[in-house]
Design a binder for these strands. Structure first.
Lengths: 347, 347
DNA sequence: CTGAAAGCGCTTACAG
DNA sequence: CTGAAAGCGCTTACAG
């Protein structure tokens, strides 16, 4: 398909990548001098360095990463474990890849499916493989199955089954739900329902926990916690299972996909939103501003979450302290699905 | 943080990964025999091979990929270029990663932002870097800026600005839109509008082209082609810009996000769907079955599209013929947004 | 059938 | 300030 250069070809148009040796020959210096010039390490005369750099650039020289890695015993690679789940993973991957690139690491993507145990095994396998210096997983893992010994590369999990891991956990913060419920109570709502996400997501668990705590604290009625998926089906089924006299009701959905199903199910029941029901979601999905009614939700900056998770991993790999983040990743956006709230109650 | 093994440590619990040398010593053979045993190449006594394999497994031996790559002059790596765009990219990445893993390649993910030209430059850069054996891009590239010489790794683009590349193009096939429009005409619709996607996506262009051709062929009225984004905003604005006497109208949206905005805009105009307007989308987004009304759409198997794109890349890297695919990636799903169609007209 | 040896392209003490 | 040399862990002709 593409012509292969003859082996004994002496013409300069070689098909092979130039090596530091080639640069050295062209620049009239030794190969080690080329290495020092490029790394900036050791002692080297500024003029020599400039000259070597210029020659290297003119030849389009790129250091062979495999050779460097073999010599330095560092692969310069980090693994990111992902899979087919909710759509916000790609945004997190984007942020993570950005930070990794800035820190000088390449990112290997590993798409993993199957049970939490199977996924955890893959993560452990990667951490022990010796091919990567660290592992960042966007999928929940089972800490019990995550037995890392000293040889293993560090693992950072954005969502874990519990808190034993180096969890960044910022996505799991459900504190804003307290704000939302308080505002709804201030607006006169007295009966609530939570349609929860999957138990093995830390974010789903903490949303449920905050819901339960707030409902208790404010002394309002709760029709309970139902559902265990991030899907519209889950929200729709929750509506279809409700008694006829459920409204007026405030439905706290685990995320916007669930909330979308709630809207759909409410329509099928003949309940108006925000008349009979008010509904809130989470994540500010791409569609959430455009449903009818549009969804009140808690936007999460997934790109930034990915960045932060990767910064934690890089810190762990380098045995540095994890960076502290202050700027919040989440906020509340009030839209039509919660009806008109007086400015006084909107936080 | 984690204890580092003392350098002169002679205890067998070494923190470093075992090498083929370590395996050779433990198995009582030479290092080259270990290599032959693991690769299955060369001539080796079955008993020796089994023994070596058992020892290697018991030690948790993993070949050092950097060393292998340096020796074989093959990195065993493929780059996938992605970015923050529509949510279906992650599904494609999943399929692509799966095929790459099966074929024995690791996948480097590169998240790229910026203009089409800037992205193209990154793709070219990767192809020439010598670090990867091939590049698969899910983002549109500009062929004019994509100057690959003989040294470059092959590039496969799922979506290209034109057809000069090795485009898999299956996602760009808009043939089913003919089926949809014919069915709507058979159901009595006589006036159409297309809300198009971004010009630089091949899929957006071919949807527009098929729309124009079908409207012409069937001799029905077209209110034109508007819009140039994959966003709900685009669909909503298209509705708000329509004259009051636009209905009855069949709106062909470039994808489900656009269609969602069309639903929203129609609601704001006081037009009922499917009464005043019928609407179709594309992609069967996660929300499409749960909008009110639910969306008639053309589901695309993005995971399989990712697999196929990666198979093409692997074939190109190996100088093999690209595999031919027969099973269609797309189909039509009729839902509420097109109203009741008699079974006779539904294809 | 097995082993000794070269070499892939780097980095980094060490000598000059 | 510069260069010769060792060695990272593999694969693969080649000799025995």
């Amino acid at each position: 398909m593409r012509p292969v250069a003859a082996r004994g070809d002496t013409v300069s148009m070689s098909a092979r990548q130039p090596t530091s040796h080639d640069v050295a020959r062209a620049a009239g210096v030794s190969q080690s001098t080329v290495s020092y010039a490029l790394s900036g390490k050791g002692t080297i005369a500024p003029r020599t360095r400039e000259h070597v750099l210029a020659v290297a650039a003119s030849m389009g020289y790129r250091p062979n990463l495999a050779a460097r890695s073999m010599r330095t015993q560092r692969s310069g690679r980090l693994a990111v474990v992902t899979g087919v789940t909710v759509d916000n993973r790609l945004r997190m991957l984007t942020g993570a890849a950005e930070v990794a690139a800035e820190a000088g690491y390449a990112v290997d993507t590993h798409s993993v499916d199957g049970t939490a145990e199977a996924r955890t095994e893959r993560v452990v396998d990667l951490a022990r493989s010796g091919q990567v210096e660290g592992v960042l997983t966007f999928l929940p893992v089972v800490p019990d199955a995550l037995t890392l010994d000293e040889d293993s590369a560090p693992v950072v999990a954005e969502t874990a089954l519990d808190e034993q891991l180096r969890t960044t956990g910022e996505l799991a913060d459900a504190g804003l739900l307290g704000t939302v419920i308080s505002a709804l109570v201030a607006a006169g709502h007295r009966r609530f329902l939570h349609v929860a996400g999957p138990e093995h997501f830390a974010s789903a668990r903490s949303r449920r926990d905050v819901y339960l705590a707030e409902v208790e604290r404010l002394g309002v009625e709760s029709l309970g916690v139902v559902g265990s998926a991030w899907s519209p089906e889950s929200g729709r089924e929750a509506m279809l299972a409700l008694p006829d006299d459920a409204p007026p009701l405030a439905v706290i959905a685990a995320n916007d996909y669930v909330a979308l199903g709630v809207l759909r199910g409410a329509a099928e029941r003949g309940w108006s939103v925000p008349g009979d029901l008010v509904v809130t979601g989470w994540d500010d999905a791409d569609f959430s501003a455009f449903t009818t009614p549009s969804l009140t939700t808690i936007p999460v900056d997934f790109v930034e979450a990915g960045r932060r998770a990767m910064r934690r991993l890089v810190a762990a790999v380098r045995h540095e302290e994890p960076p502290a983040h202050t700027a919040p990743l989440q906020r509340v956006v009030w839209r039509e699905s919660t009806g008109a709230l007086t400015p006084a109650v909107v936080p």
